[in-house]
Amino acid sequence: MNIWKWLFIFLLALNVGVIIWLYTLLNENYEAPDSENDNYTSEGSGIEIKMNNDAVESILNESISDESLSISIDETGILLDAVQEVYGFMIDTSIALDPISIGDQVVFEARNINVADLPLTQDMLYSLIRAQSDLPEGIQFSDTERALIVDSKALTDQIEWDVEVNSIDYENDEWYFSITR
């Protein structure tokens, strides 16, 4: 019987110890944030915007004035489709793009180019598209890489606010922008 008495005292002491430990753990004092430490400045602060693939696709397609050109964006990639009439023939062109935000520019690497199923190399197709394209100011094809380069100043001029592309993660349906006046 003596063993049961000591086990009871041990379990009672253990329960009291756990209750005291939980009380001290959960009884923290929290203070409200100090408003004097706020780092907001109206001159340098901008609006941070997070958009999904559908929103970016909609904005891009609305801003394109050419009906023969369309962009589709989903988690698998970005696809630029164009239909051109050349000598009475309709030529379908599609370019799979991978975006990279680099400072003041967004570089869209052309991964897979298809021009009317022509059996040409990707470099030859890129040269063909680059030579035949008439792009607006702020958007250009790279001379050294298979890439379409968009200067963020083109976006700035269009909406009259400073736009910076912070991060592009189309695979996770997230695009991050900063806009300042």
Rank of each mutant, 00 (worst) to 15 (best):
S72L: 05
L11Y: 14
E109D: 14
P33N: 03
A147T: 02
D74W: 07
W161F: 14
I102T: 11
K153F: 00
N166T: 13
A82K: 10
V165A: 02
E31W: 01
E145G: 03
F89G: 07
T121F: 10
D173K: 13
S35H: 11
I149P: 09
A131Q: 06
L125M: 03
D92A: 04
S68G: 15
V165I: 13
D74A: 10
I100W: 06
T24Y: 04
S167F: 12
Y170R: 03
L60T: 11
V165K: 05
D104Y: 01
T144H: 10
T156D: 11
P119L: 01
E48Q: 14
I47M: 11
D169A: 12
N166Q: 15
L12D: 09
L155K: 05
L11F: 15
T144D: 15
T121K: 14
G88V: 11
S152R: 07
L12W: 06
I71M: 08
Y176P: 00
S63F: 00
N15Q: 06
L125N: 02
S133N: 03
T41V: 14
V56Q: 00
S35L: 15
E164P: 07
W6N: 01
A154Y: 06
D117C: 07
A55H: 01
G44W: 04
K153D: 03
N37Q: 10
I49A: 14
A32P: 06
K50N: 14
L80P: 00
Y126S: 03
D143Y: 13
E62T: 14
E174D: 08
A96N: 01
Y170G: 04
I73C: 04
Q122F: 10
Q105N: 13
N166M: 13
E174L: 14
E85S: 15
E43N: 15
G103T: 02
D157T: 12
M1A: 12
L135K: 09
S127L: 08
L148V: 11
I113M: 02
D38R: 06
G44Q: 07
T180D: 06
I179T: 05
L60V: 15
